[in-house]
């Protein structure tokens, strides 16, 4: 096994982590501010991917598609918040799980209704096609590097938004005491809609970017949703820093596990068996990591103070 291959896998893990961060940031923000557990977040990711693929196919431009995905997912998020989610803030988590589970059914079937059962395809934009030489790696896909770049920009942007702007101040205030900021005259209903739409837009962005790597199809959001939940639970629900750390951890552990575990088992077992056990264990690895972390830190690594 060469070092170059190892670094390439590490970068792939980082790319997965960055994508998970875009999902997890929205989820954790929504949970932190509104106390809502939103299973339908994966559907917003799917909406973003479909919007991007459909608009890119119609206009021929990935970039217009990307803008469309942000608008579509933010709009879908805002409408969902106003019509349904708003009624769930005072309910217990069980009702929230159930209502958003129902939303998943509606979003998935609605998308199938609109676009049919066949997957859509989205091409990588010409500007980002091809590979770039990296020191120590050889060639690495430019598009994946761009995703990592977008993730870093979003992470820094979110930090500034939350720590430095008026909206961020309100979000933080909403996290610590929602009655009080309502009493101080902040329109908390609009704030909630804005936060939800922001989270939805991040999920849509992730969906659109990943859409060019995979096929765009109904149900694509669900595996990502579960991974994003693992991320925020590991990181501590409500903490953006935790989401970033958890996302990178999950992305890298998952990718490296799939790459390394079969090789490690091959040192002590026959090749066929090693591949089998390695692959089975690798697919369970992040859940094992999560169970392990929660067993020792029951509220995650960066539990938000509340």
């Amino acid at each position: 096994m060469s070092i170059a291959l190892l670094i390439e896998q590490l970068l792939n893990g980082l790319q997965l982590g960055v994508m998970l961060f875009l999902m997890a940031a929205g989820l954790t923000l929504i949970f932190g501010v509104m106390g809502l557990i939103n299973l339908a977040h994966g559907s917003l990711y799917m909406v973003g991917a479909f919007a991007c693929a459909a608009v890119a196919a119609a206009t021929g431009s990935f970039w217009i598609g990307l803008v469309a995905s942000l608008i579509a997912s933010a709009a879908a998020g805002a409408i969902t918040e106003i019509v349904v989610i708003r009624r769930l803030y005072d309910r217990d988590h069980l009702d929230q799980v159930l209502a958003t589970f129902a939303l998943i059914l509606m979003f998935s079937e609605g998308m199938r209704w609109l676009f049919g059962s066949f997957p859509l395809y989205l091409d990588i934009p010409p500007l980002l096609q091809g590979a770039v030489p990296l020191p120590g790696v050889g060639q690495y896909q430019l598009y994946r590097l761009a995703i990592i770049g977008v993730g870093i920009v979003v992470a820094i942007g979110l930090y500034f938004l939350i720590a430095r702007t008026r909206l961020g101040m309100r979000i933080r205030a909403g996290e610590s005491d929602r009655e009080m900021i309502g009493a101080l005259g902040v329109d908390i209903r609009t704030l909630y809609t804005v936060v939800f739409a922001l989270g939805a837009a991040l999920a849509g962005l992730a969906g659109a970017m990943v859409g060019a790597l995979q096929s765009v199809q109904v149900g694509m959001g669900e595996p990502v949703l579960i991974l994003a939940f693992v991320v925020i639970v590991i990181g501590g629900i409500g903490s953006i820093k935790g989401a970033l750390f958890g996302a990178i951890l999950v992305g890298v552990v998952d990718t490296m596990g799939r790459f390394l575990l079969p090789k490690i088992f091959a040192l002590v077992l026959p090749a066929a068996q090693a591949g089998l056990i390695g692959a089975a264990l690798a697919s369970m690895l992040i859940y094992i990591v999560m169970a392990f972390i929660l067993a020792f830190r029951p509220s995650g690594l960066f539990a938000a103070q509340s």
């Binding site: 349904v84 159930l98 209502a99 129902a102 939303l103 998943i104 059914l105 509606m106 079937e109 609605g110």
Partner: peptide
């Protein structure tokens, strides 16, 4: 879709 709606 309608199952989801009823559930909701």
């Amino acid at each position: 879709f309608f199952l989801g709606l009823i559930l909701l």
